[in-house]
Design a protein around this nucleic acid. Structure first.
Length: 522
RNA sequence: CCCCCUGUAGCUCAGUUGGCUAGAGCGCCGGAUUGUGGUUCCGGAGGUCAGUGGUUCGAGCCCACUCGGGGGGACCA
């Protein structure tokens, strides 16, 4: 059989219709305005980057591994050495290569690249050092790409993030501010207070605690963090099992355990539970303080949290908006200090009527080691990211009616002789700031009136302007209010009467004024 | 990548112990209404029953494999 062309999308990628775009823009506009208010400037970066600049990904050969889309650059370019000079072979010829490229998997790694790229030369010249690394605050939104093996509803391979980050400070005031910004952004977007909560923890506290009970080494530490991260998914007893000998899940598959000593497991579980159900930030701090007493790193983490708490308290951000949660881990390994997450407290019923949580809609934290990997200079940074699509889904559930895109005012096409007039009226209305479309579907049969009306209806147009020979002779246009028509359809069943109520003849001279005066036109 | 479930019209689904030409609702198209979206009425189109092979006189239904979808798990910088 011959190979055919089937119109279709790549798995995990979506088409975004007018309504979803509307929602997306609403989220981006509202949150960006908050970011701007705090001094963040708007940047964009390419979706495609050199794979090695995106972090620790150095894909060997052509393998797509670890969830990243990568490609070979069609262009051959010289390979650089650690000093930035071209590598040369025995004959002094530059070594050329098709470099590995990757689609960005978040907006944080490109930020580190932007920052490092600007300073790289100066760092080499020792003009920039840890003590004078510049402060940089930017927000950025756009699509990111992950090669997810398993796609679940609400999980895509292309999705949008909306990030804001502060690079160049180790003051946790920046972290505290990030949490405040997240809370304000949620409310600007339209989430009511009490339907979300910003949860905050500090990796230093847990790391210090683990060190004090003898769990050391990156491998083991990461393992414990990963297990704890699953707490809200698998529950207390399964976490305990995975720290120990492992467990068998509901499908019968064996989940290997960490094989920690019973003593250590007991202390970890006690530590995690210590602050559960404790409502005030101050008492959580108290519980944690006794748990990590004597460990330097742990105490440092507590001090940072205290600092943040003081700022929030001074600005009136109490536990209705920001809480401490010692079980919060975040998956990313690069976080080094405070981590935060916004959880939606709303629930919804799935198709089977099962009550489900919306869960995490934003995440972030401090990553003091990320820039260092690219720049060789330790530059601390912190920031957070809003999951735009996750949030869009949430808003759709909260207010399904409020998320349809508004269409243009439509001018119906009756008569070829009046065509120029249609376009003149359209131009005049546009001048007044109104979105206008002159109907131009000219295929056979498609100029029929009911076709045109159905088109306007499907596009959610607020009004249709009807101007035929009759109207032209009188110097008027018939304006039909589709919005009103939709409402009256529920109570009026006679066609003639229905039409009479939603249509009005308007002198052409008053058209702009009349349209602007329609409800919802603004 | 592992385990379980599943695949019938654009969508949601019915289809008896294997038995004539595979059905419904919604949507779509046309008409009543040639100058009008809703409502109402009438008519119409639309299917390789996911694919391939097998069992059988006969398969949408049974078996095997492949592909797609859903759920759970592992992984997730």
């Amino acid at each position: 059989m011959e190979r055919g062309i089937i119109p279709r999308k790549i798995k995990g990628f979506r088409d975004i219709d007018a309504s979803l775009n509307e929602l997306r823009q609403h989220i981006i506009r509202s949150a960006s305005a908050v970011y701007r208010k705090y001094g963040f400037e708007h940047w964009d970066t390419p979706v495609l980057e050199y794979a090695d600049a995106l972090g620790k990904y150095m894909p060997d050969e052509d393998t797509v591994d670890q969830g990243v889309y990568n490609f070979r650059n069609p262009e051959e370019e010289p390979v650089a050495g650690t000093d930035g000079n071209e590598l040369r072979d025995a004959d002094a010829k530059a070594i050329m290569e098709h470099h590995a490229l990757a689609l960005r998997y978040d907006l944080t790694a490109p930020l580190a690249r932007v920052y490092a790229e600007r300073l790289w030369q100066d760092v080499k010249r020792k003009q920039i050092m840890e003590t004078n690394a510049p402060l940089f605050r930017r927000f950025q939104y756009g699509p990111v790409y992950r090669y997810e093996l398993k796609l679940m509803p609400g999980r895509f391979r292309e999705f949008w993030q909306l990030d804001f980050d502060t690079v160049g400070t180790n003051d946790v005031a920046a972290d505290a501010e990030a949490c405040i910004i997240l809370a304000e952004a949620m409310e600007a977007i339209g989430l009511n207070r009490g339907t979300y909560v910003v949860k905050v923890n500090n990796r230093k506290v847990l790391k210090g605690f683990l060190a004090s009970i003898g769990v050391t080494g990156d491998q083991e530490e990461q393992g414990v963090l990963r297990v704890i991260d699953k707490l809200d998914k698998i529950g207390w007893s399964d976490v305990e099992a995975e720290l120990g000998t492992g467990r068998t899940d509901s499908s019968g598959a064996a989940v290997p355990g960490m094989n920690l000593h019973a003593e250590a497991i007991g202390r970890i579980m006690r530590f995690l539970r210590s602050a559960t159900g404790v409502s005030s930030r101050k008492s959580v701090l108290g519980e944690l303080e006794t748990a990590v007493a004597g460990n330097n790193l742990g105490m440092e983490g507590i001090a940072e949290l205290k600092n943040m708490d003081a700022l929030w308290a001074a600005l009136g951000f109490d536990e209705t908006r920001i809480i401490f949660d010692p079980t919060l881990m975040r998956g990313m390994a690069y976080y080094t200090g405070p981590v935060f997450e916004v959880e939606s407290l709303l629930t919804f019923k799935d198709e089977k009527g099962k009550e489900r949580k919306v869960g995490s809609i934003c995440g972030g934290g401090r990553y003091d080691g990320l820039v260092e990997k690219l720049l060789g200079l330790k530059v601390p940074a912190t920031g957070a990211s809003i999951g735009v699509d996750r949030l869009a889904e949430l808003l759709r559930m909260v207010d399904p009616a409020g998320v349809t895109a508004k269409g243009p005012v439509m001018i119906a096409f009756f008569d070829d002789d009046l065509q120029t007039q249609y376009y003149r009226i359209a131009a005049e209305l546009r001048q007044a700031g109104i979105d206008v479309e002159v109907y131009c579907g000219f295929f056979k049969g498609f100029r029929k009136m009911n076709k045109q009306m159905a088109y306007a209806d499907a596009k959610n147009c607020p009004a249709v302007i009807l101007l035929g020979a009759d109207e032209a002779a009188k110097g008027v246009a018939t304006v039909k209010n589709l919005k009103l028509g939709k409402e009256l359809a529920l109570t009026t069943f006679d066609k003639k009467e229905w039409n009479a109520q939603v249509q009005k003849e308007v002198p052409l001279g008053n058209l702009v004024e009349y349209i602007l005066g329609l409800p919802g036109m603004k």
